[in-house]
Each structure stands twice: as C-alpha cells, then as structure tokens.
Design a protein around this nucleic acid. Structure first.
Length: 488
RNA sequence: GGCGGCGUAGCCAAGCGGUAAGGCAAGGGACUGCAAAUCCCUCAUUCAGCGGUUCAAAUCCGCUCGCCGCCUCCA
C-alpha cells in the first residue's frame, strides 16, 4: 500500500487512484525564460521516478501532465534584455528544456500543454469567476477576491488576516484587499496581448495550471505536485480559482518537494547562487545526478556541492562494477586466460538458497521503503545491500551456483528501473575499435604469460589514458569502458 | 509578526514507541606479479541541550539553543 504525504492534510495517507487503475498526475512545469538550473531538476526527477514506480510496481496507468508556461513577466523582461521577441525566447528555452529532459533520461509527459494555447479557456474561467462574484475588474485587469472564497488559505494554512499583516505584500490601490491576486493583467504597450472582454491583456499567474489540469485530467485530479515554494501563493491560488468554480477539490493529493540549497541557502536565480543543469551534465552523468537526488528524501532540503555529486558517482560506480562483472562473467566479453573447469562446488546448495532468499527479502524491503512516502533513500539502501550480498556470494560461490548471480543482476536492474538507475549500458555495436581492443588484450595476455609485465602494464596504462580500464580477474580480463558508461 | 521544516558518526543520510540502515572517507588483514575490483575485521552505549510522559523515547509532549524555508518572482 503506497502512502504519500499530503500537504493538504499534513499527513501521510494511503494513496489509491480515484478511478480504477488510472492515476491522474499534474506536475508544475517550467517558465521558459532561461535554462533550468540544477535545483529545477529536483521535482522533475522525483516525480518522474514516482510515476515510474506507480506504473512498474503498482500496475497503475499514469497520465502525466506537465505544463510549459510561456507567457509571464520574466519572459517579457528576458525578451527585452536579449533584444528579441517573446516568441523566440520561449521557443529557444522550450527547445532547450526538452533536450535537457532527454539528456536526463526522463520519460516524456503524456501532455505538455503550453499556456498560450489555452488563453481562451483561461478567459472563460475568469469570466465565470466574475459571474459568480469571485472576481472583479478594475481598469482592464481582473482580480480574484480572496475574502469571497471561505476556504482561502487551506493548503498553506494561512488566513486572509495573516496575509494582511504580511509586511511584504505590495500595496496596490486597485485591489480591494492586498491579498487579492491578478487573474488578468491589462497589457502595457509593446507587451504580448490577447483580446478579452476586459480589453487587451494577458493571463496572470495560476490560471494556466487550473485550465490545463482540468482540460486533460478532469475537475479533480489525483496528484498535483511541485516544489514547496509553490504552496503559497501558486497552489493556494489555483485551488481558490478552480474550487470556486467547480465546488470540487482540484486535487486529492498535493505533493511538495524540498528545495535544493547551496551552502545551506536556497538555490535561486535571483540569488545568483545557481548552477545551470546543463553545466552539471557536462561533468556528471544523468545517472549520478539522479542518484544524488534520490538518496535524500524528496521533502527535505538537499544541499548541492561537487563533492556530493562525486560521492554519488562513486556509489553508483560500486553498483555498476558488480553489474559489469556479472555480465562479463556470463557473456563472451570475458577474455578467458585458462580453461575454467568448474570445480566441485564447495558452496552448498543451502548457501545459494540463502542467497536467493535474502534477495527476495531485500526486494520486499525495497517495496516497503518506497511505499512509505516514496522512501527512495531506504529503497536504494536495500539495493546496496543486495550489491553487498552479491559481491559476497560471488567471492565464494563456484560451479552452477554462480548462476544465482544472474538473478541478482536482474533484480538490481528491476529495482533501479523506476529510479532510472543501474540500467544496462547502451549496447554499442561491436565496432572495429572493439575488435582492435580485443587484439590488444589478447596480446597483453600473451606477454603476461611470458612474465613480461612491464609491457603489459604499459598497455594497461595507455588504455586507461583513453578511458578504457582493464581488470585482470581470476576469470580473465574484463573491460570497463568509462566512455560507454558516461554516454548512457 | 504569521505559517512550516531541520539539527543522528569525520562527511552525506535513513529511522515515524521496542533498543542506531545504507553510502563516502579512514585504519588493519586477505587475494593479486603489479594495478583495479572484491572479501574479512574495526569505525555512534548514542541521536543539539534540558525537563516530562512511558515498562520502553532519536522517535511523543514542553522549554532552550542553532540553522533554514514560505508570507514578492521562484521547482
């Protein structure tokens, strides 16, 4: 039974899709005014993994919707700064966004609606709010009347009175109440604009998510997710608009991830303390980055540093090492030095049985962890335990018993699947290069057989310079290509 | 001022009332021609501090100290 922490109730609650096997999930997407920074990746990675877990381990079908916000003040500012129109700005950064998702091995959303394609629907929503008295017009702009919506503040647990006291709310004499928020913004000269019953203007924030979530997923969706900085005002304001109109909950579960920090403070564009995601991808693999994120509970803050990524890289390496070794042993990629006549097993069947039993126990442990508010940290710990057990078994099992290692390999891959970890390396075709490599290794084997270690070591060192690492094991020499590893 | 979170070994980090997972680093030993990888062993009587509840507390309650987030744009 999967349980998730619901911001709405501030409790961990059992989760089941409302109808049958289909989970309707909406995750707030980017405003395309710049490249994503590394902190923006957290929700993308976390909720993608959650989605895959639900699909692969719960047997649910997930409809995953993630918006592209392509109209906003920041986009306009950016367009002015770059001396371009807003359209080329959004095109450029939308394109970069999708390329980044692919580079991170994130499965695409089922729908990626763009705000500008739904302006008509937003106008309709705003008109309904006006009709019902939840909004008012003032000089071509429309504002939401928070005092009219009795439940305003239920998600973020604040009251309209509290907000009034909030020292940081700018005074806007057009608003009836300082906490009222803009639904429709009268456009200034030179800004992108759409015709509306209130004159030329553009949508304020929040409406696009309501419209697009409902368009693709219906009036009440199962999961609405995003960063915890969106709880207020974004999600609170989505709720008020949507529920004022439908009278039904906009979402059953509200999920919020913690922020990425850097040296203890929140990473934020406006703080200038950010690192672009594509810069990090130049240095670390997608797998390392995912491991980094998923070894910290998604609701807690996570501190970014190169050292932390390096540690993640090593931890991933430990798993990959095992996987490579097992794969090499059971495939032809192993270059055998001598005939491996399987000696009589001194590892009894009961050892093998214990091992297999331990594997299934750890699998259960993994599922229990993941079910517990998506505890990927414990889930990965269970995988690391499997790795440890497998290494241990591998170091003493002989003969046919060793086939049990294949089960460990398959299990690790399966458990890694939702997390996007420990995948089989992309099988590059056996290239001419590889054939030459094998020739070299064979040559080196002969040298070593003749005790000519100096030349053999030189070959190994030179290959290492090229990113190809050779390991001489009792079973023969295996190739660990760092380059292949990094391209996955 | 209002709302919320966090403080666990040298570092990262689980834990959700039953007696401290996992990773990184470190030290000792084994294997190896040397590497690499791996195996064995060591590494928190203790969870910011002080009280309280309980047979039992890192876990619940209260207070104190420290750090952080939201209340304006933010994932």
């Amino acid at each position: 039974m999967l349980k998730l922490y619901n911001t709405l109730t501030r409790k961990v609650e059992p989760f089941q899709p409302q109808d049958g096997n289909t989970v309707k999930m909406y995750v707030c997407g980017p405003t395309v005014y710049d490249y994503l920074h590394i902190g923006n990746l957290r929700p993308l990675i976390v909720y993608n993994a959650l989605r895959r877990y639900m699909e692969l381990f719960k047997g649910w079908q997930v409809i995953y919707v993630q918006n592209i916000t392509d109209i906003d003040d920041k986009i306009i500012d950016r367009a002015i700064a770059e001396g371009q129109d807003t359209l080329s700005i959004t095109a450029k950064y939308t394109d970069a966004y999708f390329k980044l998702l692919a580079a991170l091995d994130l499965s695409p959303a089922d729908h990626n609606p763009r705000a500008t394609d739904y302006v008509a629907e937003m106008i309709k929503l705003i008109a309904t709010l006006l009709d019902k008295g939840y909004a008012y017009e003032q000089d071509g702009s429309v504002y939401f009347r928070v005092t009219k919506f009795a439940q305003y503040g239920k998600l973020s647990r604040r009251s309209v009175e509290d907000l009034q006291q909030g020292v940081r709310i700018a005074v806007n004499e057009q608003k009836e109440h300082p906490a009222d928020f803009t639904l429709w913004k009268a456009s200034k000269a030179g800004e992108p604009k759409w015709d509306s019953p209130w004159g030329a203007g553009r949508p304020g924030w929040h409406s696009e998510c309501v419209v697009m979530a409902q368009k693709f997923l219906g009036e009440t969706i199962d999961i609405h997710a995003g960063g915890n900085d969106l709880i207020f005002p974004h999600h609170e304001n989505e709720i008020s608009q949507a529920e004022a109109v439908t009278g039904k909950p906009l979402a059953r579960f509200w999920l919020h991830n913690g922020m990425l920090t850097i040296k203890g403070t929140e990473m934020h564009k406006s703080h200038g303390n950010f690192v672009y995601a594509h810069q990090v991808l130049e240095r670390f693999t997608a797998e390392t980055i995912r491991y980094f994120y998923l070894t910290r509970h998604y609701r807690k803050p996570l501190d970014y540093s190169e050292e932390a990524l390096e540690e993640a890289e090593k931890a991933v390496w430990r798993v990959k090492n095992l996987l490579n070794d097992i794969e090499a042993e059971f495939s032809s990629s192993l270059i055998t030095t001598q005939d491996q006549t399987p000696d009589k097993s001194d590892c009894t069947n009961s050892d093998r049985d214990d091992f297999l039993q331990r594997l299934s126990h750890l699998k259960q442990q993994y599922i229990a962890a993941m079910d517990n508010d998506f505890g990927t940290v414990d889930g990965i710990a269970a995988v690391q335990e499997i790795v440890k057990e497998a290494h241990r078994f591998r170091s003493r099992a002989t003969g046919d018993d060793r086939n049990a290692l294949k089960e460990a390999l398959v299990l690790i891959r399966d458990l890694g699947l939702p997390l996007g970890l420990f995948k089989r390396q992309a099988q590059t075709e056996r290239s001419r290069e590889e054939e030459l490599l094998r020739l070299l290794i064979d040559l080196r084997q002969r040298l070593r057989a003749k005790q000519d270690f100096a030349l053999g070591d030189k070959i190994r060192q030179d290959l290492a310079q090229l990113g190809i690492i050779l390991k001489d094991t009792p079973q023969g020499t295996t190739i660990v290509s760092k380059q292949i590893d990094q391209s996955n």
